[in-house]
Design a protein around this nucleic acid. Structure first.
Lengths: 145, 145
DNA sequence: CTTGACCTTCCAGTCACTGGAAACCCTATC
DNA sequence: GATAGGGTTTCCAGTGACTGGAAGGTCAAG
């Protein structure tokens, strides 16, 4: 198979497949003309990678998962640990986005959205929290990170 | 104020503040010794930017929001539109993460996580979905090798 | 005069691609 | 044989929003 075929069958862009070869995730052979020549096993790996990426695993995690997949002597605990860590990351991200969402939705709802300049959204963004107040100002750590 | 002061008071790293100057978000003056010299208004802008970034607005959106903030003749509708678009992006992202989360949580739950190699997580990642099913699969034997 | 904290610029790296240029290869048609 | 059109190759550069680090200038204290 040439790269276009595996791109079609794996759903990954040819560019991405070349990139995956670049970083050593796959090692397709070469035909006499210099074209990459993919075997079914390469396609299989690429599909694996595509699904792992779709679940949000990083490239390095994908590399590890692929290695575990090919290691008959793996322990499922190794795989599970990676997945659990990733799950935690996802949960953190969701929480962060939901917090953003709540604040933003509140502001959007409060904004008239008409021709007048008064805008609660801008007012909130511009509110003073620089510790430049008269008294001592405790740093109000607000959602970030 | 020097950059360290505004960094402390805005909560932004000095590196980020320099970067914001680089891309034209702020324009601090310079002291005779070449140091950046920040006024209260610069600090105010940086705090504004910090909060907008914490809500997930892109740098370009921040640039626009800042311009609107300084434009007395703005219409709140302009601000609201930006915020609403961003809110939609956030919702999309949350949905995507929740879908990942659901799949992953299911797999993690199904995995024994012990010393044995059998692993539903790997099995799922490796499941065949390459369109190479047993029935009609014309060999794509084209070109080279 | 030295120390150490602060500041400066510039370059490179992050992550996972993505776009584009210039050139080569292969097949089909005229 | 020429040409057109696809597919493929490599390499370079850019994305977003910083972040790390090197090499050096500035300043106040001791």
């Amino acid at each position: 198979m040439n790269i276009g075929d595996v791109a079609d069958r794996s759903g990954l862009p040819a560019k991405t497949i070349r990139y995956y070869e670049d970083i050593g995730l796959i090692r397709p052979r070469r035909s006499a003309n210099g074209y990459r020549s993919f075997r079914e096993s390469d396609l299989h790996k690429l599909a694996f990678l595509g699904r792992a990426r779709a679940l949000g695993f990083t490239i390095e995690e994908c590399r590890t998962l692929l290695a575990l997949y090919e290691d008959e002597g793996r322990e499922s605990a190794q795989v599970k640990r990676i997945a659990e860590e990733h799950l935690e990351r996802i949960d953190d991200k969701i929480a962060q986005l939901q917090s953003m969402r709540a604040t933003l939705a509140h502001l959007v709802q409060a904004c008239a959205g008409d021709h007048r300049p008064d805008c609660p959204i801008l007012e909130d963004l511009a509110r003073d929290g620089t510790g430049a107040a008269g008294a001592d100002a405790p740093p109000a750590g607000r959602g970030g990170a």
